[in-house]
Design a binder for these strands. Structure first.
Length: 439
RNA sequence: GGGGGCGUGGUGUAGCGGCUAACAUGCGGCCCUGUCAAGGCCGAGACCGCGGGUUCGAAUCCCGUCGCUCCCGCCA
């Protein structure tokens, strides 16, 4: 018999159907049993008159909450039933899998355990529809990104995550045994994205894993996360990248709101706002002035960088000045940016780079890249890098490479900001951190 | 790596120098009822993270340790 989704039962009144799902609640009475069954589309009440089959009634009585059942029965319109005004009158029941009792984590308890305990029992935690909703939103968001890229002639790439030599600084790399030698887990697809530019791909994107060996204990860091990266050729400056990004994000927010707006309001209390473009842009020098005006004291050792508290202060300023949730912090000093960021011809101390701050948290870093071999090599040396280890990368720029730029964004950080989640661990399927490798 | 906070039945909390450790929820049993966040009664379940100290007396105070968490650093 064909399966009917619980969410579609209304259109099957009077028919015999088969449903599958978890037994969320059993109300076991003297003459009747009411089973609340849940599948991915919703909940339904199943009614059973015990007198119909005493043995079956007895079997049902022993079922622990969250057991998996297949039920056939007639769908009956019944306004008395508070759950959707209909019920399935049970004809047969098959237990697919019994759930032990008590559950270590009851997904439908009034109080939700701490995040760490929830991660121990993540598959039970994820049975809550609010959790599933996060990943439905993520799915739509990723689809919207792809839609936008494909509309703009992008090529999707998948760069390797095992690397033979440390790229960039090397401090935050995971080292792994690789046969007789050592390999490193990619902490960014940066070099390979640029290689695609040298290959003449012109516009590429990648959604893939990124590894950072940073022992960071915060609500927004992970040691493995999904990076959304893109790179485009023939730009004049980082401004072109920012324009592309803001329009793409507006598209993504618009699609997510269209598909999940109601659910997001209901489950997360967030009235999703599709951001208007262009986003406010604040050059670093101006940002420092604003912080001064706002009375925010930057730590003395910061030297032109801005700490998270400063970013939040700027966000509040942007919110009250422009009523916008996003802003670009642009033109960062070379001291706090990697060697491959291009510098202004007339201001060699300043990079053509930006961060995107959403609701006070950094979610994107981007820049125009330096594509001129000699200058790139010079900047690398200046930053104390060994040319030898990055020679393969420098070679990309020896036989013709278009001017280009791009960005990297944290998927979970975006989701966290979008749904106003308190912790990135909520926004990722399975969290990986310095102290968390399981499940 | 530095700093703050928290560790009490399965879970979430209360208690913060005299506790035979309380409440909610869950779990088990019984009763009642077309139930529906069901209701009622009974019951099991915690040597209060661990180790040491102060005290007549410690879940409560102190020190150490471990775990978790948040902030900073770093970043997406």
């Amino acid at each position: 018999m064909q399966r009917t989704f619980i969410g579609d039962l209304r259109s099957h009144i009077g028919e015999k159907v088969q449903i599958h799902g978890f037994l969320q609640t059993l109300r076991d009475q003297k003459k009747m049993q009411f089973l609340i069954v849940r599948d991915q589309t919703g909940l339904v009440q199943v009614a059973f008159w015990k007198a119909n089959d005493a043995a079956l009634a007895e079997q049902i009585s022993t079922l622990g909450a969250e057991s998996v059942v297949t039920i056939t029965g007639a769908v009956v319109d019944n306004p008395v039933v508070k759950l959707g005004g209909l019920e399935v009158q049970l004809e047969s029941l098959q237990v697919e899998s019994t759930a032990g009792s008590p559950l270590p984590l009851d997904p439908f308890a009034e109080t939700i355990p701490s995040i760490d305990y929830r991660l121990d029992w993540r598959y039970l935690d994820m049975r809550r529809p609010q959790v599933a909703a996060i990943f439905q939103v993520q799915t739509t968001a990723e689809q919207a990104f792809r839609e936008y890229w494909l509309q703009h002639n992008f090529i999707e790439v998948h760069s390797p995550k095992l690397m033979g030599s440390p790229s960039e600084s090397g401090a935050e790399l995971f080292e792994v045994q690789y046969f007789e030698t050592k390999a490193y887990l990619a902490q960014s697809p940066q070099f390979y994205k640029q290689m695609a530019m040298a290959a003449g791909f012109e516009r590429i994107f990648e959604i893939g894993p990124v590894f950072r060996a940073d022992p960071s204990f915060t609500s927004r860091h992970m040691t493995e996360f999904t990076g959304i990266d893109m790179e485009i050729s023939y730009i004049e400056s980082h401004e072109d990248v920012m324009v592309f990004l803001e329009n793409m994000l507006a598209h993504v927010y618009s699609r997510v709101k269209e598909v999940h707006g109601e659910k997001i309001k209901e489950m997360f209390g967030v009235d999703l706002v599709v951001p208007t473009t262009p986003f406010p842009r604040i050059p670093m020098t101006r940002a420092l002035e604003i912080l001064k005006e706002e009375g925010y004291q930057l730590p003395a050792e910061k030297k032109g960088d801005i700490d998270p508290g400063g970013e939040r202060t700027l966000y509040n300023w942007v919110k009250k000045t422009y009523n916008h949730d996003f802003f670009y912090l642009t033109d960062w000093p070379i001291a706090v940016r990697p060697f491959y960021h291009m510098r202004y011809a007339d201001r060699p101390e300043v990079t053509k780079s930006f961060d995107l701050i959403a609701n006070g948290t950094e979610i994107v870093t981007g820049a125009q890249r330096e594509h001129r071999y000699d200058i790139l090599a010079k900047q690398a040396v200046e930053k104390g890098l060994s040319l030898e280890t990055i020679q393969f990368y420098l070679d990309f720029f020896r036989y013709g490479c278009p001017p280009h730029g791009g960005f990297g964004m944290g998927l979970s950080r975006l989701l966290m900001m979008m749904l106003n989640l308190p912790n990135i661990r909520e926004a990722v399927f399975l969290f990986r951190g310095p102290n968390r490798l399981n499940p």
